[in-house]
Design a protein around this nucleic acid. Structure first.
Length: 554
RNA sequence: GCGCCGGUAGUGUAGUGGUUAUCACUAUGGCUUGCCAAGCCAUAAACCCGGGUUCGAAUCCCGGCCGGCGCACCA
C-alpha cells in the first residue's frame, strides 16, 4: 500500500467518520462544495460558538445578519464588480492565460495566436424577481452588509467611535478551479468583525491585556529580504514599527488567543503581512494568521485588514448618504466666519433664469470682494445692492468635526479553520503493534463530549448506562451511548472522533453507584460517584477542573 | 480554463474482453471474553457517468464528472 500523506489520512478519517463529505456525491460531486456531516457540523458549530464568545460577548461587537445576496449597487460601490471582472484570453499554442486588456493579438510568451476572450467574475450573478432586469450577486464577503448598515449601526451605538459589529455567514466565490478540499470552496462560512475607529485614535483601551502576548510575525521586510520570522510581544512589535498601531496589535493578539483556544498548534501558527501586490483592492495593510499544513504549507486561516476609509467613502459617494461621525472637541472652538445671505426673492425677480448661477458666484466671493460692491458675471458688472445680498462676519462655536471612520477587519475562514484543526489534532500513536488514531481536540471543542459505555450490554449495566446518558444530556452535554463490541474497540472509536472522556459503567457501579471516567489523551481513569457525575463532567468539558483532581485515580 | 496521471463495497485494495468481481479492515447480529482495535460464526456492502467498438465492456476507445500534480487563477 502506498503511504498516504497526512492530508489524505485526515480527509479519509473525516469522510469515514462523518466530518466532511463531498457535496452531491451520488451525482458525482461538484468541485468547491463540501458537506459537513454530523460530527463536522457539530465541530464547526463549537468553533463558531467560541468565536461568538470572543467577539460578541468578549468584545461587545453585536452580531447582525444581512442577506447573502446583494444588489448590484452595493458591489459596484465596493469595487467588487470592477475588480472581479477580468477578460481572459488563452494562447492556443502554449495554453498561457492573459488579461485580455493587457495583450495584443499574439501570445507574448510564444507568439501563438490567442483564443476568444472570456469574462470571469468571482461573484455568482443572478437576477432578482421576474423580468431579469435587476441584477443580484451572491455576496463574496459579509463585510458589505455591515458597511451598508453603517448609518443604522452608528445610531445604535449612540453616535460614538469606536464600535464593532460582527457577522458570520455563508459567502460565495465562483472560483475558476477550486482544489485542495475544503481549503478553497465556492461556498463557505466567514466570520467577520468590522471595527470602526477614529483614525486619529489608534490606542486600544484594553491594550494592557494583550501587550505581553508573544507573536510569531513575518513582516514584509523579512519576506522581501532573506529574513526570518520574528518572535515578539505585541508591545515590542508596535514599538518597533512592525505592527502599525495598537488596534491592529490588539486584534492580532485576539486572533491568536482564539486559534490556540480551539486547538491550533502554537508551533504551526504565524502572522504574515501581505506584500503590497497581494493586498485586496480595499486594504491599506493586512496580516494573515497562517497555519502550517503538511501538504500545502502555510495557509491563511484569518485575515486582518486595515481597510482604511475605503468602503465608507465608496458607499458615501455612490449613494450620497452621510457616512461620517460627528466627533466633539473637548473644548468648543470659536471661529469667525463670513456669512452670505442672498435675498432670493429679489435676485430671482431681477435676474430670472440666471439667478441660480449668480448666487453660485456670490458664494465663492471673499469678504474683500464683497466689499467692492460689484460682481462680474458673464461679462457684465452687476452692482451688489443691500436689497440683493446681506453679508457680514459672525463668530460661532464649533463643537467638533465630522470624521470618516477607518475600519479594522478580522475575517475568519471557518471552514479552513476546521480543516487546520483536524490536521493539527490528528495523531497516530503506536501502542504495541496497534496504531491508535486520536483527534486531540480541546474538550470544549470536541463534537461529542462524552461517551457512555456499559462494560457489558447485560446484567443491568446497559439500563444503568442509559440512565446516566440521559442525565448527562440534561446537563447540556452531547453524549454518545455505545454498547457495541468490546470496550477497547469502543474507546478507540471515540479516540478517533476526538471524544475527550468516556464513562464506563461496570459491575462495581451496581454495588457502589460509581463509574469510571477515562481521559482520551492519557487513557488514565478516575472513579467518580454518579451523583457527582454531571457536575464533574461539565467542569471537565469546560476545562475548569483538572482530570486527576476530579475523582479517585485508578 | 490548459497539460499529465488516476477513479473497484464505508475505508484500503486484488483482478480480468466471457458463469456468482478478490482480500483485509470497518459495520451489523450472535457466541465467547470482561477496561484499551483479541477469537469464532453469520450478514450487509463496490467496478464514477454517458456514448462508441464488440456476440459480450467494469476492462479497449471517446466525451463528461470527480480527484491528484504542474501552469494560470485565488479580489
Amino acid at each position: 500500500m502506498i503511504a498516504m500523506d497526512k492530508y489524505e489520512r485526515v480527509i479519509e478519517l473525516a469522510k469515514r467518520r462523518g466530518f466532511l463529505w463531498p457535496s452531491f456525491e451520488i451525482y458525482g460531486s461538484t468541485a468547491g462544495f463540501w458537506d459537513f456531516g454530523p460530527l463536522g457540523a457539530a465541530l464547526k458549530r463549537r468553533i463558531e460558538d467560541l468565536w461568538r464568545d470572543f467577539y460578541v460577548i468578549g468584545e461587545g461587537f453585536y452580531e447582525i445578519e444581512t442577506p447573502t445576496m446583494g444588489i448590484e449597487d452595493v458591489f459596484v460601490a465596493s469595487g467588487h464588480v470592477s475588480s472581479f471582472v477580468d477578460l481572459m484570453v488563452e494562447c492556443k499554442k502554449c495554453g498561457e492565460a492573459f488579461r485580455a486588456d493587457l495583450v495584443q493579438e499574439k501570445c507574448p510568451e510564444c507568439g501563438g495566436s490567442l483564443g476568444d476572450a472570456y469574462a470571469f467574475n468571482l461573484m455568482f450573478k443572478t437576477s432578482i424577481g421576474p423580468g431579469s432586469q435587476r441584477i443580484g450577486y451572491l455576496r463574496p464577503e459579509t463585510a458589505q452588509g455591515m458597511f451598508v448598515d453603517f448609518h443604522r449601526l452608528l445610531r445604535f451605538y449612540r453616535d460614538k467611535l469606536p464600535f464593532g459589529v460582527a457577522q458570520m455567514g455563508k459567502v460565495y466565490r465562483n472560483e475558476i478551479s477550486p482544489r485542495q478540499g475544503v481549503l478553497r470552496l465556492r461556498e463557505f462560512t466567514i466570520a467577520e468583525a468590522e471595527i470602526f475607529i477614529d483614525p486619529r485614535e489608534r490606542e486600544h483601551p484594553r491594550f494592557d491585556d494583550v501587550e505581553d502576548v508573544m507573536l510569531r510575525l513575518y513582516p514584509v521586510k523579512e519576506q522581501v529580504g532573506k529574513g526570518s520570522m520574528l518572535e515578539l510581544s505585541v508591545k515590542d512589535a508596535i514599538d518597533r514599527g512592525i505592527v502599525a498601531h495598537q488596534f491592529m496589535g490588539y486584534h492580532i493578539a485576539l486572533i491568536q488567543l482564539f486559534l490556540l483556544g480551539i486547538g491550533i498548534s502554537p508551533e504551526k501558527l504565524r502572522f504574515r503581512q501581505h506584500k503590497e501586490d497581494e493586498r485586496a483592492h480595499y486594504a491599506v495593510d493586512c496580516w494573515d494568521a497562517e497555519a502550517l499544513t503538511d501538504r500545502f504549507g502555510w495557509i491563511e486561516l484569518v485575515g486582518i485588514a486595515d481597510r482604511g476609509d475605503y468602503d465608507l467613502k465608496a458607499h458615501a459617494k455612490h449613494c450620497q448618504t452621510e457616512m461620517t461621525v460627528f466627533v466633539p472637541y473637548e473644548q468648543p472652538i470659536t471661529k469667525e466666519r463670513t456669512v452670505i445671505k442672498p435675498n432670493m426673492s429679489a435676485i430671482g425677480r431681477k435676474f430670472k433664469d440666471k439667478a441660480a448661477k449668480i448666487v453660485g458666484v456670490l458664494r465663492t466671493l471673499s469678504m474683500e470682494q464683497l466689499e467692492e460692491g460689484v460682481i462680474q458675471f458673464e461679462g457684465e458688472t452687476i452692482p451688489l445692492t443691500k436689497d440683493l445680498v446681506e453679508y457680514g462676519h459672525v463668530t460661532e462655536e464649533v463643537r467638533g468635526e465630522r470624521v470618516m471612520p477607518h475600519v479594522i477587519e478580522p475575517s475568519y475562514g471557518i471552514d479552513r479553520i476546521v480543516y487546520a484543526l483536524l490536521e493539527h489534532s490528528f495523531e497516530e500513536e503506536r501502542i504495541e503493534d496497534e496504531t491508535r488514531i486520536v483527534l486531540r481536540f480541546p474538550p470544549n471543542i470536541a463534537p461529542v463530549q462524552a461517551a457512555v459505555l456499559p462494560l457489558l450490554s447485560r446484567d443491568g449495566l446497559d439500563e444503568k448506562a442509559r440512565e446516566i446518558e440521559h442525565s448527562l444530556r440534561k446537563s447540556g452535554l452531547l453524549v454518545d451511548y455505545d454498547d457495541s463490541g468490546t470496550i477497547g474497540r469502543r474507546y478507540r472509536r471515540h479516540d478517533e472522533i476526538g471524544t475527550p472522556f468516556a464513562i464506563t459503567i461496570d459491575h462495581q457501579t451496581l454495588e457502589d453507584e460509581t463509574v469510571t471516567i477515562r481521559e482520551r489523551d492519557t487513557m488514565r481513569q478516575i472513579r467518580v460517584r454518579i451523583k457527582d457525575l454531571s457536575g464533574v463532567m461539565v467542569g471537565l468539558v469546560a476545562g475548569d477542573v483538572a482530570f486527576e483532581s476530579a475523582g479517585t485515580l485508578i
